[in-house]
Amino acid sequence: MSAEPGAATIEARGLTRKFGAHTAVKGIDLELKRGEVLGFLGPNGAGKTTTMQMLTGNLAPTGGAINICGIDLLEAPVAAKARIGYLPEHPPLYREFTVDEYLLLAAKLHRVPRARCREAVETSKRRCGLANSGAKLLGTLSRGFQQRVGIAQAIVHSPDVVILDEPTVGLDPHQIREIRSLIRELGGKHSVILSTHILPEVEAVCDRVQILHHGSLVYGDTIAALKRSRGGSAVLLGLQRAPSLDTLAAIPGIAQVHAVSPVLFRVDFHPHDDATERLAAQAAKNDWGLFQISPVHTSLEDVFVQLTRHEEVD
């Protein structure tokens, strides 16, 4: 069902969750297409985990609807859950089980046909770099390996949607790279929701990003759009013999000039008006001693901080 690419695998409308008088999630809309990796961002306590718990059927929403591949999660939870793989913040591992036993249990519980269970376990082990760890007890594994087992149990039944809550916490840089490439790979066949605090991670692996703040979505765009909007908005300018700031600011298209140091300036352009060329021409003509001109990136981090900061102040 709905195997064609581009079909929505998750569709949530007006998702709301209240805990007593406190509203943790306020009417979120969320849509995920097959083959897409969605970065789900937000400061601590923004409602990310609550949202993920609702999407995976661990928590009943106070309001709103969730459709997983066209199946209503609230009306047919069993059918819908079979299409989801979930790695919670804290990997739910039974310490007294071996990796093989645990993954086999996960496969059976997720209704993988009995004859294909072994094969499914082997595949997910190979994908998560656990091929040689099958006989190890979960309780004796290092944090990084436990995390891998957590991911392996989420993908063992080859679900349409994989939901990962901070999958790279506690991993070393090598493991983080491996997990990231795994997530990219998963994005090819499945859709992935990735919740994280690590912003470069989102830029590295996600197609789309949504930022959650105080229970509401405050930003949602593709990473490609974010990258397009980068550059052309500001440059860092290095001049050996700098003129006065006013002279610089007088160049057409320039909105603002800050002196970072006596020879370095941050020059902000008017939106959609890249004045880099004019700036360079002026510098050459007036012999300002131009030695550096580099675009300042609006990173995801800037967006994130801007959107989620102001309310902390008041």
Partner: peptide
Amino acid sequence: QTMVFLMSAP
């Protein structure tokens, strides 16, 4: 916190 393993399963 392993209950979620069973609760997320179908």
